[in-house]
Write a protein that binds this DNA or RNA. Structure first.
Lengths: 238, 238
DNA sequence: CAGTGGTCTAGACCACAGC
DNA sequence: CTGTGGTCTAGACCACTGC
């Protein structure tokens, strides 16, 4: 974190959290804040753009900058824009894993397309049940590119794969494409998610990219309808 | 559309569509493109940022700018980031509506919070079934702020409310908060969506904001699991 | 009118990839 | 080392709001 606008965004986020800036009118305008942080106005605005896209701030030309009212969205149980893995999303909870299968294979044609692979570049295939506070939570069916997510072991899979990617491999996630849908339960769902054959399932299918644009993960995550939902904050900054 | 970066983004999008820029390396770099369009490099980069967030482009520092491979995501049946209404999302289809109920009422406490209203500021309450190619598609339960979405009539509701908001009221949508979940069907779902009591339902709950930050719509849209899914392109531009 | 945020510039400098 | 994209600046000008 050496970029000025990220640091300023962080600081502003902190001030909103702490109630230094409250619902209603905000700081002494962009110019004053730019001066306070010792940056140009464009850099300050870029920091604000981040918070605006997160839905924390909104701005009215000719009026000023305001803190958005926090609603059910901020207390939501899961943000779609979050790649750091379940361990980070649920810091208060005990997150465990049960490994249902773990092997290495050559990619299918679909995987070759989605992950930009040749047919001889292997992928890990992992089926894993995430357990939160002793309750089955998510059934993940995941493929990782072996050349990128090197040397996966059962221990890593049992803990947090994303923590391994970030800390040990020092890779940075840059984004994802996701498809969210509802579905009828499969045999595997019924077996592992404490579902019946009529429990609706929420599925998230995704391709995750590194910051350099290279895809490294394809996965489908399934949960019982009453265990999880997804929120999206989708603001176009002015 | 008077902003240069929007015009440039539009033009670049067109070039990608037409295959002038293909998968692989792209244009003569930012400086050359900036010159071509007669703008500064920062402005050009801002145009590219838009396309990067849409997932069309990705850039590698030290290398260049590339067109992203189009995959199932681009052919997806519904993008979560789309406010222009069903009529626009499904241009090839015949979209009709059945109005199940339409009245005006005072907001509940929850609505007052979500839509920033006082208890005496009325809302329209509309329950509407959207029918696509003669098939029931989405059951919408929507509240609009009367002071903003003025003079709603049954005719408007029968056609496209978003078209009315854009063309007649000349209001610009700025964003939305959404929550996507799966659910068990209600009586209303079963009655109108050709569902049984064991058909999973996909629900989208949302608050939609104008470009000036004022919320004007709260709604829940429900579909059968096999009729619809949502895609999210979620890229952090470098 | 004064005051707010949004756009745009021309150029400097930095970070990273690949030869 | 060269060429790419990313950051940042200082300041000009525009667009909108509200008095």
């Amino acid at each position: 974190m050496s970029k000025k606008y990220e640091e300023i965004a962080e600081e502003l986020r902190r001030r909103i959290d702490q109630g230094i800036y409250r619902e209603g009118k905000m700081l002494p305008q962009q110019i004053a804040l730019a001066e306070e942080f010792g940056v140009s106005r464009m850099t300050l605005k870029k920091a604000m753009d981040i918070l605006a896209m997160e839905g924390l701030l909104f701005r009215k030309r000719g009026v000023g900058t305001f803190v958005h009212k926090s609603t059910l969205w901020n207390t939501a149980n899961y943000k779609a824009t979050e790649y750091r893995g379940l361990t980070v999303q649920l810091p208060d909870k005990k997150v465990e894993s049960e490994i249902i299968s773990f092997d290495i294979q050559f990619p299918t044609e679909k995987l070759q397309t989605l992950l930009m692979l040749d047919s001889n570049e292997a992928v890990y295939h992992i089926v894993r049940l995430r357990i939160v506070d002793k309750k089955p939570y998510i059934l993940e069916d995941t493929y990782y590119v072996v050349d990128i997510v090197k040397n996966l072991t059962e221990e890593i899979i049992y803990e947090s794969i994303y923590e391994y990617i970030r800390s040990n491999l020092e890779l940075k996630v840059g984004g994802a494409y996701r498809k969210i849908s509802a579905d009828i339960p499969t045999e595997l769902d019924i077996e592992h998610l404490e579902a019946t054959d009529r429990t609706p399932i929420l599925e998230v299918e995704q391709v995750v990219y590194l910051a350099n644009g290279v895809p490294f993960e394809y996965s489908k995550s399934r949960s019982r309808y009453d265990m999880r939902s997804y929120t999206i904050t989708d603001i176009i900054p002015n």
